[in-house]
Design a protein around this nucleic acid. Structure first.
Lengths: 114, 114
DNA sequence: GTCGTAGTTTGACAGATGTCGTACTACGAT
DNA sequence: ATCGTAGTACGACATCTGTCAAACTACGAC
């Protein structure tokens, strides 16, 4: 029997490129991923503050988890989030870093001009 | 006055990462991009055969163009499509290649196991 | 001109998506 | 046992998306 707070993740081989790209294509989710990458360690949901309500956050974190981009685990009442760097790197070498670097460049451009 | 067959593209600086990722997240469009990359040169719409009707093709090519992934130009009645490699590379270095390589790996895996 | 070919436009439609508010659940602290 | 906190579930909603069919437009060839 599964514990009341079980969380299911796709196996490494089940991760699909299209779903990963779709997950990363949303501004809110891309922001989450950038923060996770910047921290390097896992973070709980609420320490990543987002311009949306709690229920919308839950939705975005689920999309990220189900697409294989993050791994979520409970630590008491907090739900910790971590990038699945190893899985993504072995499946799609260089992809995550390319997206993160692209997002960084774009953010810099946005900040610089305007 | 614009010619009857004018095509508008986003300027380089207007290309947004989120839109590019969204454009690449669709299987049909990813397939188009992979073929364009494999050929290396521009191809007309109908020589890339897709499992959808003509009107759906038009839709996908427009999404790719408006997101800045491809450039379209008329050559007689044919509409030629080319990847905007230079623009993408300067904005998001390594991104397109990472996605293409990821798509290649996934295709190889799909072909191998089943 | 007339015709065929390549692609567009429009309208329709079912399904997905992002968002919210409210009610709920699980856990730790007291 | 009670309470507060972190997050979930559910239902609602407007919008977006991928798809098609049918009618249309622009161009080259004849």
């Amino acid at each position: 029997m599964t514990s009341p707070r079980a969380v299911t993740h796709p196996a490494r081989e089940e991760i699909r490129l299209e779903e990963v790209l779709h997950a990363l294509a949303d501004p809110v989710r891309l922001h989450v991923v950038r923060q996770l990458a910047a921290e390097g360690t896992e973070m709980n949901c609420s320490c990543i503050d987002l311009p949306v309500t709690k229920s919308t956050s839950t939705h975005h974190f689920r999309v990220l988890r189900e697409s294989g981009v993050i791994r979520q685990t409970y630590r008491g009442t907090a739900k910790m989030n971590a990038l699945r760097r190893d899985a993504l790197e072995s499946l799609f070498p260089g992809l995550l870093d390319a997206v993160l670097s692209a997002a960084g460049h774009q953010a810099a451009r946005d900040a610089a001009h305007r």
